[in-house]
Simulated assay, not measured.
Amino acid sequence: MAARIARCFMLLPLVTMLAGCDWVVLRPAGDIALQQRDLIVVSTILMLLIVLPVMALTGIFAWRYRQSNREATYDPEWHHSTQLELVIWSAPLLIIIALGAVTWIATHTLDPYRKLSRLDAARPLPAEVRPLKVQVVALDWKWLFIYPDYGIASVNEMAAPVDVPIAFQITASSVMNSFFVPALAGQIYAMPGMETQLHAVINKAGDYEGFSANYSGHGFSHMRFRFAGMDGAAFDAWVAKVRASEGTLSREEYLRLEQPSERQPVRHYGASTAGLFDAIVNLCVDPTKMCMRDMMAIDARGGLGKAGIYNVAHLAYDRSRSRLDRSQDEAYVLSLCSIAPETMASPAPDAPQYGSVR
């Protein structure tokens, strides 16, 4: 027994190592993350209202009715107590009702697709403030951020002005990832061929960490990026710095960038091709490929008819299962519109400037 106690005391110094931990989930810098923190705290307290009494009573009953306690009442025929049943069932039922109500409200209030209505608990969102649009692409194994209003992009670095709503559009290039900045908001999945959204705001200037919260392969552990919350003037200076970069995020450059790589340094692109994010979502950055939206439009109109049957019937991997007659040498030609060439994006003349935002 003494040896066990000694081992416990030897482990106590390890607890001091936790002093270096940053409890960012419980001390976030964004209003959405703060509301999610409050939901976690409230839910935990409500559940502890049952857990703690049960744990305490387990110890009390074990001690009171131990075999050596001759003073405890011994009643082997006891089987029911209405008062005890009321307590046992009513308390958990009330807690479940409270948890259900809190969860239902939070599910709608914190819907990531819902636009913000406030900057924080004390300040509603001013009508004149325009959201900052950021298009996020999860690559293998790095993050690409496109700012469509400014015609710029960056790799593994993102900046946003304080107290300005951020409207994220999120997708992935190959496999599912999860976009997560704990100080800003909860994680949102990034999936290829799909677009997810997130509306959030950062309320304190500082450097924060973002990463992928969903395992996505060999380089997953290094798939991290810097999220910088800045005042309006500092953000405008950051935009000017990125614009001064020589790199251009064209379709060809994106196809090179999406190739798997690890530990990528921060990279800036002073110009970005218009419509690139839409092409990424529709899996047609390569101009020789048909966009997914065009395929779905053809399917919605009934498919390709005879031409489609012929093309599918001649797929090599379907030969063993096909029951169609291939003895005829017929071919069908289908004419499809090609992708129009796109010009290099230039910053929108009415792109918002955040130097005067308060």
Score class of each variant (00 low, 15 high):
43 S>M: 10
139 L>N: 06
225 F>S: 01
251 R>Y: 09
267 R>S: 12
163 D>F: 13
159 A>P: 01
337 C>P: 05
151 G>Y: 07
206 G>C: 08
223 M>V: 04
73 T>F: 12
341 P>I: 06
31 D>M: 08
161 P>V: 13
333 V>C: 01
53 P>R: 03
167 A>R: 05
37 R>L: 01
219 G>E: 05
57 L>Y: 13
187 Q>H: 02
257 L>E: 06
351 A>H: 00
350 D>W: 08
20 G>I: 06
218 H>R: 11
60 I>M: 07
199 H>V: 02
295 M>G: 15
326 R>Q: 11
131 P>C: 04
73 T>V: 14
103 T>C: 10
246 E>V: 03
158 M>A: 07
320 S>N: 10
287 P>N: 06
330 E>Q: 15
49 L>F: 07
266 V>Q: 14
127 A>H: 12
167 A>M: 12
51 V>A: 14
175 V>K: 09
216 S>F: 04
17 M>S: 12
223 M>E: 08
190 A>F: 03
20 G>P: 01
206 G>E: 09
36 Q>C: 05
76 P>M: 03
349 P>E: 12
95 I>W: 04
120 D>I: 06
353 Q>G: 10
76 P>G: 08
149 D>W: 03
71 E>W: 08
345 A>S: 13
237 A>M: 06
170 I>D: 04
82 T>V: 09
70 R>T: 13
173 S>W: 06
189 Y>N: 15
318 D>W: 15
304 L>R: 08
179 F>P: 00
71 E>R: 07
299 D>P: 00
44 T>Q: 15
291 C>M: 02
291 C>F: 00
37 R>D: 03
354 Y>V: 02
156 N>E: 09
343 T>E: 14
172 A>C: 00
196 T>V: 01
129 V>R: 07
71 E>T: 15
354 Y>H: 05
179 F>A: 05
50 I>N: 12
139 L>C: 13
258 E>V: 15
192 P>Y: 09
166 I>T: 07
269 Y>K: 12
263 R>N: 14
101 A>P: 02
267 R>L: 11
135 Q>K: 08
147 Y>F: 12
229 G>L: 13
206 G>K: 01
173 S>E: 13
136 V>Q: 04
155 V>D: 02
81 S>R: 08
178 S>Y: 03
196 T>A: 04
151 G>C: 06
356 S>L: 05
92 P>E: 14
169 Q>N: 06
270 G>Y: 11
20 G>F: 04
330 E>A: 13
113 Y>S: 10
150 Y>L: 00
13 P>H: 04
36 Q>A: 11
59 G>L: 10
87 V>F: 11
32 I>F: 09
327 S>W: 10
150 Y>V: 10
312 V>I: 11
169 Q>W: 06
238 W>G: 02
318 D>V: 14
60 I>T: 10
284 C>E: 10
288 T>Y: 00
156 N>A: 01
104 W>Y: 11
79 H>N: 09
156 N>F: 04
3 A>Q: 15
264 Q>A: 13
342 E>Y: 03
336 L>K: 09
229 G>P: 02
269 Y>N: 04
243 R>P: 03
303 G>F: 08
197 Q>F: 04
158 M>E: 14
323 R>T: 14
329 D>K: 15
288 T>W: 00
325 D>W: 12
71 E>N: 14
171 T>D: 00
64 R>N: 05
